[in-house]
Amino acid sequence: MISLPRACALTAACALVLTACGGSTGTSGSATPTSTVDVGKAAPVTPLDAATVARAEKQGSVLLYTNADADQMAPLTKAFEAKYPGIKVRVLNMTDPQTFQRYATESATGVRTADVVMASDAVEMLNFVDKGGVLDYDDPNLEHLPAYARLAPGVVSMSEDPLVAVYNTALIPKEKQPRDLASLAELAKSLKGKIGTTDIGNSQSFGAVSNYIAEHGEAGWKNIAVLGPNTGVESGNGNLMQKLAQGQYQAAYFVAGSVRALIEGEEAGKILNYTYLTDGTPLLPRAVAVTERAASPDAGKLFVNFTLSVEGQQAACKGGFTPYRDGVECAYGLPAVEAVVGKDNMMLGGYPKDIVENKPAIVDRWKKAYNR
């Protein structure tokens, strides 16, 4: 067993990293990624034109509102500032609802607001577009990106982040850890109160549920109905990971994929193990967009251009994002996920159809299943 001080240190690390975060095949071991997959050939570099770059450098700064935490963003912002030393990136971390509410308040009062927003909540982002919050900007990288990366006018995915299952290996050995949600549902009653997830109010939880249901329909709802009354619900991934590390939970599902790098660390790996869900891994597009009220619109465009480039996606990988462009070497990249779960089990395709209209019904049905 790991010592109490080391366990406490791990839970503190979990909280730090995760403050802002998201066909049955049985239980034959862990479904973790491999870095030895074919990542394809990188497309030609597609930078902005010289005039836009010159204006961006004159503007000199980018204000970014994002749901990713400081540790996650650091490799990306440092790489951008190293490439464009005359432009500084200021990052404000907040939830998706806080991002859009703050933008609305600041825009109404004439206070400087975000040049770029980065969010995982499909409904909030689509509402933001409908309200005229997004600059209708097509980045040159788009010609080299898959169709699913185009989420809405001016909105593009910079990362396709998976939701994973996480287990306390001292309580459920690796060889007995379910690799899919259907198998975990079968164990739910025997693990009553020892399984955890995050509340549907969390954008990553809603994204996971909505994507899973879009793929599996009533069969998916059946699994959720079994899991619901046997699952503890936390407000965010920080609490979830702490309780997993402490043994209050033995398993958790629909956990933000940003935990992967942490769990593979020397200490955390002795307690926790993560797995992709082989009956369907939800992949949430983390959307990025330049705002209509940007004070530094060209600097914002340049930042978006960098995040979508092979160079930018390589830097994002270091923070735990999931790059999807061809030619990006990353143990957490989309090809690595596909190598584990198979192409047919990748819940990938932009925003689910009619997600804005369907959200109230999904939330209501989830709440009934979880007695909320």
Rank of each mutant, 00 (worst) to 15 (best):
Q72S: 10
S107N: 05
Q101R: 15
A119D: 12
N93P: 11
M94T: 11
M94V: 04
L92W: 08
A56V: 11
G86R: 11
M118T: 04
A114I: 08
A56W: 12
E106S: 03
D96V: 15
Q101L: 14
L92Y: 13
T109N: 10
A79V: 13
K78V: 05
D69P: 10
L76S: 15
A79K: 13
V91K: 12
T109P: 00
T77M: 05
V62I: 09
V62N: 08
S107P: 00
D115E: 06
A82C: 00
A74H: 02
V116T: 01
L76P: 05
D71C: 02
T105Q: 14
D115N: 03
T95H: 04
T95C: 04
Q101S: 15
Q101C: 00
T77K: 13
V116G: 04
L64V: 15
F100H: 06
R112D: 06
A114Y: 07
M73D: 03
V117K: 09
T99S: 14
D71F: 08
D115V: 03
T99P: 04
T66P: 08
P97H: 09
D96C: 15
D96M: 10
M73G: 01
A119Q: 03
M94H: 09
P85H: 09
K58H: 13
T66K: 05
K58N: 10
A56C: 12
G60W: 10
A82P: 01
M94R: 15
R112I: 01
Q72G: 06
V62S: 08
M118R: 01
R112S: 00
S107C: 03
K88W: 04
A56L: 09
V116Q: 05
D96E: 13
P97K: 05
N67H: 06
A68D: 10
T109R: 13
Y84G: 11
V117I: 15
T95A: 12
F80C: 14
G110F: 07
F100R: 02
S61V: 03
E81H: 05
F80S: 14
V111Y: 00
A74N: 07
V116F: 01
R90Y: 02
P75L: 05
A114N: 04
A108Q: 14
I87M: 09
T95K: 09
V91R: 07
F100A: 01
T109F: 02
T66Q: 06
T113Y: 03
K83P: 01
F100T: 08
L92K: 14
A56I: 08
R55N: 14
D96W: 08
A119H: 03
A56Y: 13
R55E: 15
F80P: 12
L92V: 14
A56Q: 12
P85Y: 04
E81F: 02
K83I: 05
R102F: 01
P97V: 07
D71R: 13
L63Q: 13
V117R: 02
D96G: 09
K78G: 07
I87F: 12
T105A: 13
E81C: 05
L76F: 06
A108E: 12
S120M: 09
G60T: 07
Y84K: 11
D115C: 05
A79S: 15
M94N: 09
R55V: 13
A70W: 01
N93S: 14
V116L: 07
P75C: 03
T99G: 07
A68M: 09
S107R: 10
F80V: 10
R90N: 06
A119K: 03
K88M: 00
